[in-house]
Amino acid sequence: MNLVFEHVTLGQRIIFGTGAAAENLATEVGRLEKNRVMVIAAPSQAALAREVTRGIPVAVHHSDVAQHVPFANAREARAIAGRNDIDLLVCIGGGSTTGLAKAIALTTGLPIVALPTTYSGSEATNVWGLTESGRKTTGIDNKVLPVSVIYDAALTFSLPVKLSIASGLNGIAHCVDSMWAPRTDPINQTLAVEGIRALSAGLTTIKNDPSDVLGREQALYGAYLSAVAFASAGSGLHHKICHVLGGAYNMPHAETHAVLLPHVLAFNAPAAPEATARIVRAFETSTATAGLASLYARLDAPRALKEYGFREESVPGAAELIMGAVPKSNPRTVTETELRNLLFAAYSGTVPTA
């Protein structure tokens, strides 16, 4: 078959090195010639943020971070940036922290330097999200893409093993969704295969030995690849489901992605044989669902939405909301009944089969 596709690679500077975050950040701020920095970090990361930013000109430390980026939080953070004549945003944390920096950049155009402490991958995408009145709105804008990302495995040691696993599985969900998302192409599918391999190996190592630096480096590397693939390919069915559940039911981001992934993979895999074959090669197993199931067993991964506050009676309403967001490019036709069945299985923790 002839290759016919259009691919966009986002421009971004990546600096990778364990134990070098403070030094690399100071170098980047100097290179960008900025002198009024707004540092964004959740209260749990405050001490880490002050240590890492000791060598840069910080004008404001901001810690009002919440998951799914409530619009009220974004509005206040934008106002603070304006009052303090901020010329650079530095975010230190996971997806919620990066998301708040993106919300500020969306309206101000301020550049972002991101220092991830999880495997969410938000730092490598131009996707933003805001939540208001129980609805999560997402969009794409190159203004929100961090100009630089500083990866340092030492910054992830404060992340508990269970949350590391959920966060890394969110990265694998980026990879799987990239196989059949609206703008998928052979380049981001190839990145996704390597992302699955790196994340699977890295997460397994973290589970067995949380102090292993090499495992955490592999997980960060895989998270970056997964995000680059996702940024190019766009949001598939998996992410549309999770965005609805996050916005409407305030579900925890990483755990929701981890729980839903096996169900969406089992649903779509039979209808996308070429993409599924790539996933099989990444897992080096007989089937894609078997590969993912084996990984979940090794990691003792999150299994059921009911364990994270989702209620069974919410399934019909959630399915109705999701139907309005299903990508037309999904390899399998989706009905509301099938969505209900998928959500019921995810709610209860039933092991899916293709």
Results as ranks from 00 to 15, higher is better:
residue 181 A to M: 10
residue 240 K to P: 00
residue 217 E to K: 07
residue 256 T to A: 08
residue 216 R to Q: 00
residue 186 P to M: 09
residue 184 T to E: 04
residue 235 S to F: 05
residue 238 H to W: 11
residue 260 L to V: 15
residue 189 Q to D: 07
residue 170 N to L: 13
residue 188 N to M: 11
residue 251 M to P: 12
residue 194 E to S: 09
residue 165 I to Y: 11
residue 230 F to E: 08
residue 173 A to D: 00
residue 185 D to K: 14
residue 240 K to H: 11
residue 196 I to E: 08
residue 256 T to R: 08
residue 190 T to A: 15
residue 200 S to Q: 10
residue 221 Y to V: 04
residue 249 Y to R: 09
residue 223 A to Q: 01
residue 201 A to H: 11
residue 208 N to F: 04
residue 172 I to A: 02
residue 196 I to L: 01
residue 176 V to L: 07
residue 211 S to M: 11
residue 211 S to E: 15
residue 167 S to D: 01
residue 226 S to V: 05
residue 214 L to N: 11
residue 235 S to G: 09
residue 230 F to H: 08
residue 222 G to S: 08
residue 238 H to A: 03
residue 170 N to Y: 08
residue 194 E to I: 03
residue 251 M to C: 10
residue 259 V to E: 08
residue 258 A to D: 04
residue 200 S to C: 01
residue 236 G to C: 06
residue 243 H to I: 13
residue 202 G to P: 02
residue 200 S to E: 02
residue 227 A to I: 13
residue 184 T to K: 14
residue 250 N to Q: 13
residue 204 T to Q: 03
residue 260 L to G: 04
residue 185 D to R: 01
residue 221 Y to D: 00
residue 212 D to H: 02
residue 258 A to Q: 07
residue 198 A to K: 15
residue 253 H to V: 03
residue 248 A to R: 14
residue 200 S to F: 07
residue 213 V to H: 04
residue 225 L to K: 13
residue 215 G to P: 15
residue 186 P to V: 05
residue 169 L to K: 05
residue 170 N to R: 14
residue 202 G to D: 07
residue 244 V to D: 01
residue 187 I to S: 04
residue 185 D to T: 10
residue 236 G to F: 09
